[in-house]
Amino acid sequence: MLTYFAKRIALGLVTIWFIASATFFGMHAVPGDPLAGDKAMTAQIRANLEAKYGLDKPLGSQYLIYLGNIARGDFGISYTQENRRVNDIIREHFPISATLGILAIVFAGLGGVLWGALTALYRNRWPDVVIMFLVILGISVPSFVVAAISQWSLVGANLAAGTTILPIGGWGTVWHMLVPALVLGLSTMAYLTRLMRSSMLEVVSTDYIRTAKAKGLPATQIFSRHQLRNAILPVVTVLGPAIAGITTGGFVVEIVFAIPGLGRYFVQAIQQLDYTVIMGTTVFYGAFLVFMVILVDLVYGLIDPRVRVEK
């Protein structure tokens, strides 16, 4: 078990090296000039700036310096904000994206289980039809359209109420997070609902449910003790990958709801061709994903004895 995870972690480190290298050589293949500004600059100033960012050295040594810095966890200085370090930028903006992502996962998980169970219980009756219709809507409309329409509706609701029911954007309190997190979690919630529904239906036709019915257990007890518990397992197994996807996929809600997360910052950095921020963010996210996957495996290993034996 321990050697298995030691191996996984070693492999993870190699993966991060791969990501870092891909990003580095990718960025240096980008046409364009990260130092260019509105005003043309003199050769002297340009040379000074190039020296500051180490752009005057040959690519090979730039690469080695870069790898060395990453190994020490140093992502360098931003090109657009010359007095800020990329580490500070990640430290300030990533927790926001992560908080939003976790809340979205909570919404998606709770909602998925709840709606999935409901639809299975009321199979082919109106709650099933209504919820499945919403689910289909949730997975078939582009997220930026959903985000824009929900913000617009919220403005309308606030105007009609004459007071702020919920903030329509920005960051700071739990209330700011609710709507963006819902929007962010929507497609995952829809996916989980479908999964939960089919899982529930499968469980209903198993022998132990029939036995439980036969021995006269009340329906509520069958539902909570046997049906729900067993149906939830497959849902839990897909939550892991979903976490990573959601935390890095917050670009749209962060832009629409003016949330200062790392996703929005990344998009801005791309438009500014801020080399160090782009590379730092990508490597950081890559590393984050790699270790999330390892962590999720570890947790499964602890929870589910079958997985432990297999490995």
Binding site: Q151, W152, L159, I168, G170, I255, A258
Partner: peptide, 19 residues
């Protein structure tokens, strides 16, 4: 300065919402 965003739609919505 409660918000920093270049999104024109968000800006309009904040104004409409008296923010």
């Amino acid at each position: 300065v409660p918000y920093i965003t270049s999104d024109a739609t968000a800006s309009l919505n904040f104004f409409k919402d008296s923010k």
